[in-house]
């Protein structure tokens, strides 16, 4: 028995297959979930993958947030189900108010695609225990609406509670406040980030490194030891 990790496909998801592959590489069993299906099929964790669900119409993630599958994801996440939102998945999590703050267009108004250096600020979440706190990693970043914003009170609270999980290093690619690349909820089971760990799990592709793989081994370790 290994852990079953669901990956939701929304209309416009792009990275659902890569995410499934990353889960398999980590030794867990990927389970395809469909946006119209409320049933999570007994998965132990859920990943909301990157892409442009519903064409980013209205706001990135705004329409997906109301899809049938999200009703169950929101309910279960509040009850402790581990959920990871990558890129568009992060946008969906902020729109669903599972994570504080919001995502807006990059400050330079252009799409950006680059290998991004990050610092792991919190290695205690369900998705980051296989990193070391302070570790520097390189994973791909590709987005249009990657600017993380929140009011000063929320930002101070996130910092004080150690809920900034990843920070951009050397270069802020989108104008995110306080160089925030990823955050977690109070319980640490819900994590969202803009860069794409699933694209950095094999030496052959992506950054040529496997710096993203620990996301998926972290959750497996967490679930198997639970």
């Amino acid at each position: 028995m290994t852990a079953r990790i669901g990956v939701v496909t929304f209309p416009g998801s792009l990275d659902d297959r890569d995410t499934q592959r990353a889960i398999r590489l980590a030794g867990a069993e990927p389970v395809a979930l469909w946006h119209k299906d409320k049933d999570l099929h007994q998965v132990d964790a859920v990943v909301l993958p990157g892409g442009f669900s519903y064409g980013d119409y209205l706001r990135a993630g705004a329409i997906s947030r109301f899809s049938p599958v999200m009703e169950t994801v929101i309910e279960q996440a509040k009850a402790g189900l581990p959920v990871l939102g990558i890129c568009n998945g992060f946008q969906i999590l902020t729109e669903a108010h599972l994570l504080p703050g919001g995502m807006l267009g990059n400050d330079h108004l252009h799409f950006i695609c680059r290998d991004q250096k990050l610092r792991v600020e919190n290695a205690d979440t369900a998705w980051t225990v296989d990193y070391a706190s302070g570790q520097e990693i390189h994973i791909p970043l590709k987005n249009m609406d990657g600017r993380y914003v929140a009011d000063e009170y929320t930002l101070d609270k996130l910092e004080a509670e150690g809920r900034v999980v990843f920070r951009y290093l050397d270069f802020n690619p989108n104008g995110s406040l306080r160089d925030i690349a990823g955050i977690t909820n109070e319980a640490g089971n819900v994590v969202g980030l803009m860069p794409h760990p699933e694209h950095a799990t094999e030496p052959l592709i992506g950054t040529g490194r496997t710096d993203g793989l620990p996301f998926f081994t972290s959750i497996l370790k967490k679930l198997v030891n639970a």
């Binding site: 706001r59 705004a62 902020t94 108010h97 504080p100 703050g101 919001g102 807006l104």
Partner: peptide, 8 residues
């Protein structure tokens, strides 16, 4: 709840 995201 939908047309605006009142966080931003």
């Amino acid at each position: 709840s939908f047309l605006a995201n009142t966080v931003i």
